[in-house]
């Protein structure tokens, strides 16, 4: 029963009903209570070739909260983020040496894990906005079309909800069929967020989403994150301490591949337990 059902399901386009056999927890974020641990990182050692990038990182990311990863350049925060949807698979020589990452209790490095399925549920927004050289409409429907969705009305609907969700609808609704590359930097980044939203992931990973944007565009994205937190689990990597303080519920501070401190954002910024954390958040190094 388990093995025969999926191939039928594969052709069904709806994104909300993915797998019938994993009943309660799998049907979506709505069921799991906010604040429960969704992603569980346990003693993770990660290597690029001979270079160890992460040393025994243990961390629990909570459902429908914004978690910020902060730390100086090269501390491993982006690496950890890219581990969460296994984007590091694309880099030659990158490997997890020890430890595991569980999402909903499932080790994502298990051999039977379909990395495609994983990435559908764990979306990602990149440091530099990277819309495809296609129209706005095509950019957003890209993920759904991959899953076989061809119903035009449904696609249009998704385009609208995603763009509204990314607070971009009003700005682009009249030029949905123009190239996504024609938008401004901030708009491009929001388009990328909308593109990620369209596949209805549970987790959205943001890798320094505002580092290439001006303050106004940054403010818009931050506003957007505040809106999205009610529906998605967001993990954001940032260099900007104020941003982490503004948008996140929990903050993890990394240094040289090690997790130094992980706590409520308020605690990290007001009353950090480690001297290194204090030095970093107060701007004395990094």
């Amino acid at each position: 029963m388990v093995t025969s059902a999926p191939s039928l399901m594969e052709t069904r386009p709806s994104a909300s009903v993915r797998h019938p056999t994993v009943a309660a927890p799998a049907t979506g974020a709505a069921v799991a209570p906010a604040g429960a641990t969704l992603v569980d990182i346990d003693q993770l050692d990660f290597f690029y070739g001979a270079l160890q990038a992460l040393h025994g990182v243990t961390l629990g990311i909570e459902n429908r909260k914004v978690t910020a990863f902060i730390g100086p350049s090269g501390c491993g925060k982006s690496t950890l983020l890219r581990c969460l949807n296994r984007m590091n698979d694309l880099i030659d020589g990158a490997r997890v040496a020890k430890g595991m990452i569980k999402i909903r209790g499932i080790d994502i490095h298990r051999p039977d894990v379909d990395v495609i399925e994983l990435r559908k549920r764990v979306g990602m927004v990149f440091q530099k906005s990277n819309p495809f050289p296609k129209s706005i409409h095509e950019n957003i429907t890209y993920g759904l079309k991959l899953q076989g969705q061809t119903n035009k009305a449904r696609l249009d609907e998704v385009v609208e909800t995603s763009l509204r969700g990314a607070a971009l609808w009003d700005e682009v609704k009249d030029r949905l069929h123009t190239s996504g590359l024609g938008l401004s930097g901030g708009q491009q980044q929001r388009l990328c967020i909308a593109r990620a939203l369209a596949v209805e992931p549970e987790v959205i990973l943001m890798d320094e989403p505002c580092s290439a944007l001006d303050p106004v565009a940054t403010a818009k994205i931050e506003e957007l994150i505040q809106e999205l937190r009610t529906r998605f689990t967001i993990v954001i990597v940032t260099h900007n301490m104020q941003q982490a303080a503004r948008v996140s519920d929990k903050t993890a501070f990394f240094y040289l591949g090690k997790l130094i401190e992980y706590a409520d954002t308020r605690t990290i910024f007001m009353n950090p337990a480690h001297a290194q954390t204090e030095a970093y958040v107060s701007g004395r190094f990094g």
Binding site: M87, F126, N130, F132, V199
Partner: peptide, 13 residues
């Protein structure tokens, strides 16, 4: 590379 990564991150094979 950004195009490829974005596509993979959206769950494309």
């Amino acid at each position: 590379r950004a195009f490829t990564e974005a596509s993979f991150a959206l769950g494309a094979t």
